[in-house]
């Protein structure tokens, strides 16, 4: 601003656009959260199996592909709810737009289903191995190793996409950071791990996952720090965008829900568990899940409002 005295009046008052942009609500929050979670589930379950060289026998791990698909469907359901022209949903699949993360996402989502099904088929409990499924099961088992690598790649793609979807929108200054992709991916992995830890697993699986989860949480903290550093060291636009977390309207909820409850406390509890061999309590994963959901909710709500209109 050229002067401390600046009055600006606009006649525009479009619904959901003014006075502050608010086009995406809980539907997209849930979708982004579940998308990341599912990405985490795929990556972690695949890596675990690749590390051990054989399929898990725990009921929890065996159900992961189906659980992931159910959660993904829920997420796509909320995404669908958000569409304002639901009858045109099929148009997502009549085009592929390489410049549009939304388009990438739509197609990735579609690939996840067969992959998940095949993963599930490849490690079915004996009771479910019906004769009619014999051929697909055989195929799934034959291709299992490649499928596992595919699910890692797909999971990374899906996790990154949920962040890049927002991060590539340069008009929303707060979102417009390349950190958002890895941040959402890491958060997806950590929430995925948290969800897995709530399932009946073998003790060694649990132990590995707790360690991986801590690495993910630590990485997420680092990425959040990078995001904030990006804001405070950036242009006036970036500083304006970051200000909501650093004294602005979202400061309290961001630091308490996301940073402290969602990341720092679980990290500390995880360290205690590992070091002191304390028995696992369900609270840690629940906090991680809450933190992951809050991260999406807060970034989605606050980031929408950070447009160029706030700049002179």
């Amino acid at each position: 601003m050229t002067s401390p005295f600046h009055e600006s009046v606009t006649t525009r008052l479009n619904h959901a656009i003014d006075p502050a942009l608010h086009i995406w609500g809980w539907e997209i929050t849930v979708y982004l959260f579940l998308g990341g979670l599912v990405a985490g589930l795929f990556i972690l379950s695949a890596l675990l199996e690749l590390q051990r060289g054989k399929p898990s026998t725990s009921s929890g791990m065996r159900s992961v592909p189906i659980l992931a698909l159910v959660l993904l469907s829920l997420g796509m359901g909320t995404l669908f709810l958000d569409l304002d022209y639901k009858a045109h949903v099929f148009r997502f699949y009549m085009a592929f737009r390489p410049s549009s993360p939304m388009s990438w996402g739509a197609w990735i989502l579609l690939l996840v289903y067969p992959a998940g099904l095949l993963l599930w088929l490849g490690n079915l409990p004996a009771a479910l191995q019906l004769p009619v499924l014999a051929r697909p099961i055989a195929a799934a088992q034959r291709w299992r190793r490649r499928l596992l690598w595919l699910s890692v790649v797909m999971g990374v793609g899906l996790g990154l996409y949920t962040g890049l979807l927002l991060g590539t929108l340069s008009a929303r200054i707060q979102w417009n950071s390349a950190v958002l992709g890895p941040l959402f991916l890491t958060s997806g992995i950590s929430t995925g791990a948290a969800l897995l830890l709530l399932l009946p697993l073998h003790a060694d699986e649990r132990k590995t996952l707790i360690r991986w989860d801590m690495v993910a949480i630590a990485t997420e903290l680092l990425l959040l720090a990078l995001l904030l550093i990006g804001y405070v060291t950036g242009s006036s636009a970036a500083r304006m965008a970051g200000a909501v977390f650093l004294g602005g309207a979202w400061t309290a909820s961001f630091w308490s829900l996301v940073v402290v409850l969602g990341l720092c406390v679980p990290l500390a509890m995880g360290l205690l568990e590992v070091r002191k061999h304390l028995p696992l309590i369900a609270l840690t994963p629940v906090l991680v899940l809450i933190g992951g959901l809050s991260l999406r909710a807060i970034l989605l709500a606050s980031g929408q409002e950070t447009g160029f209109r706030l700049l002179p």
Partner: peptide
């Protein structure tokens, strides 16, 4: 209009907030 799903990615992407549903 016939190809639009109302996903609103374009609205979020517009630096001028010129669009609406």
């Amino acid at each position: 209009h016939d190809a639009c799903t109302g996903c609103k990615a374009c609205i979020a992407s517009c630096p001028y907030d010129a669009r609406y549903v």
